[in-house]
Amino acid sequence: MSAFRTFADAVSGGAIPVIIALVALVGALRGVKVYEVFVEGAKEGFEVAVRIIPYLVAVLVAVGLVRSAGLLDLLSRALAPVLGAVGVPAETLPMMLVRPLSGSGADGVMVELMKAHGADSMAATTAAVMSGAADTTFYILAVYFGSVGIKRIRHGLWAGLIGDLAGLLTAAWFTKALLF
């Protein structure tokens, strides 16, 4: 595991500058006018950032209101008995509800569980695996579809959320099977 860890640290710590330098070098060797082409591509970054603002405002306000109103607390109280039946620790329900809505919210829930039950507890460990097993679907949807002006999302949200649910449930099962 420690060799893997070293590799992991090296990748997440140093990959980006190496990739950028490699691309520039290969580009130059192949006769690409690297600076001109880079600037031309980078110009688009600003346009995209501005284009996604209205979509992000809509989604983040809706998601923020839902979280702030206590709707999730209500749901997690109502759903707790169901979770036990499918083999998922009931304490991780807030995690399952928050994960698709907010990344920082999910981190918060995870830290809360570690503080309340200990970092090595089943609830906290399951929540940690869940955090990696799903993503902030609402945010990704707003940014990805917003960047090209898609307003009719068809099954986009459902496919993403069904995938999240599968990831979250299997996270609990794999944690239990492999670590406890």
């Binding site: 990739i19 580009g27 950032a49 501005v50």
Partner: peptide, 22 residues
């Protein structure tokens, strides 16, 4: 939301530039 989008500007520009070169 607006801050987040504008905060992305630099990174978006960087990677879209690198992507174009690649």
């Amino acid at each position: 939301a607006a801050k987040l989008a504008l905060g992305l500007t630099g990174v978006l520009a960087l990677w879209m530039g690198v992507m174009r070169v690649a």
